[in-house]
Simulated assay, not measured.
Amino acid sequence: MVTNEPVATLAGKVAVISGSSAGIGAAISRELSDRGATVVINYPSANLRVDAEKVLSSLSRPGIAVEADLSTINGPAHLVKSAVAAYGKIDILVNNAAIAVNKPLEDQNLEDWNALVNLNGRGNFLLTKATLPHLSHGQGRIVNIVSNSSRDAPPWQTIYAGTKGMVDSFTRCWAKELPPKYGCTVNAVSPGPTNTEGFAAAGEGVMKILQPIMDRTPRGARMADPSEIAFAVGFLCEERAGWVNGEHLMVNGGLFVD
């Protein structure tokens, strides 16, 4: 009998997805839950609790939502402690939380710098460090959500592209350093323009820049759907992907080919 029910290939796994109350993070949460994982949703502030709970209610199986601002010094450790208190371990870490500033270099300032570097860079660094003592040895998965901008940056993204380049480099370093110690894999997924709430709110100026980029995408002149990015993450989390390590998977319709 043919069934459309997803196979629970990640049953028994605990997945922490940072920045998962909306957008790509929410889609990754649903993808991993559909594959059988128990998911820990993360949101940065109390005003996003309702959004996080909506994502939680959309999952295939029970999980938890944890308020933790990963741009702070203590936020990453709080997220990990909450996950471990609930489930005793972490099998999958998806470093997704990030923000973007899109404006000319002349208009970018130290406030922008601190906001993006503290979350996009330091947040991933601290969250991964906090996770390692609790990461399941031999089967752990770390997936960093980078960006097409790390290697093919458009105008107006000086700081954002720089922080994503930082996470690109984290992936390269960690893929060599961590597997011998923890038996894990470390990979990256880089979306191109993706139809999230953040892009919808970016404004006409940003869309004018992005439209010509989308127009030259070989697979079609459109944004990605968040579920398409999530599927790539799901693949990297599978047991059968255990020999995939240090990969930077571009999920952009062929917009950038390295």
Rank of each mutant, 00 (worst) to 15 (best):
N4C: 14
E5H: 13
P6S: 15
G12R: 12
V16K: 05
G23R: 09
G23Y: 02
G23T: 13
I28R: 05
S29C: 15
R30W: 07
E31I: 03
S33P: 10
S33A: 15
G36I: 11
G36A: 13
A37P: 11
N47R: 15
N47H: 15
L48G: 09
L48F: 14
E53M: 13
E53G: 07
E53C: 03
L56S: 12
L56P: 05
S58G: 13
L59D: 06
S60D: 11
G63H: 10
I64S: 09
D69Y: 07
D69W: 02
L70M: 09
S71M: 04
S71E: 03
I73W: 10
I73V: 15
N74C: 09
N74V: 12
P76C: 12
P76I: 08
H78K: 14
V80T: 03
S82L: 02
A86P: 06
Y87G: 03
L93I: 06
V94R: 02
N95F: 08
N96M: 02
A97M: 03
A97V: 01
A98W: 05
N102K: 08
K103Y: 06
P104R: 12
D107Q: 15
N109Q: 13
D112L: 07
L116N: 00
N120M: 04
N120F: 05
N124I: 00
N124D: 03
N124G: 11
F125I: 00
F125L: 13
L126N: 01
L127M: 06
K129G: 01
G138V: 02
G138N: 00
Q139C: 01
Q139K: 10
G140P: 01
R141T: 00
V143T: 06
V143Q: 05
I145H: 02
S150N: 10
R151H: 10
R151A: 13
A153W: 07
A153C: 14
W156K: 08
T158P: 00
T158W: 03
G162R: 07
T163P: 07
M166A: 14
T171A: 08
W174P: 04
W174T: 04
E177K: 02
E177Q: 11
L178E: 04
L178N: 07
P179C: 07
K181T: 05
G183P: 06
T185A: 00
V189C: 01
T194D: 04
T196K: 02
A201Q: 14
A202E: 09
G203Y: 06
V206N: 08
K208E: 15
I209L: 13
L210A: 13
Q211M: 10
P212D: 03
M214Q: 07
D215M: 07
R216P: 08
R216V: 15
R219C: 11
R222Y: 09
R222K: 15
R222L: 08
M223G: 11
A224H: 13
E228I: 10
I229S: 05
I229L: 07
V233I: 09
V233T: 08
F235K: 05
L236T: 02
R240L: 08
W243H: 13
W243E: 00
G246E: 12
G246N: 10
G246Y: 12
H248F: 12
L249W: 09
M250V: 04
V251S: 13
G253I: 08
G254M: 11
L255I: 11
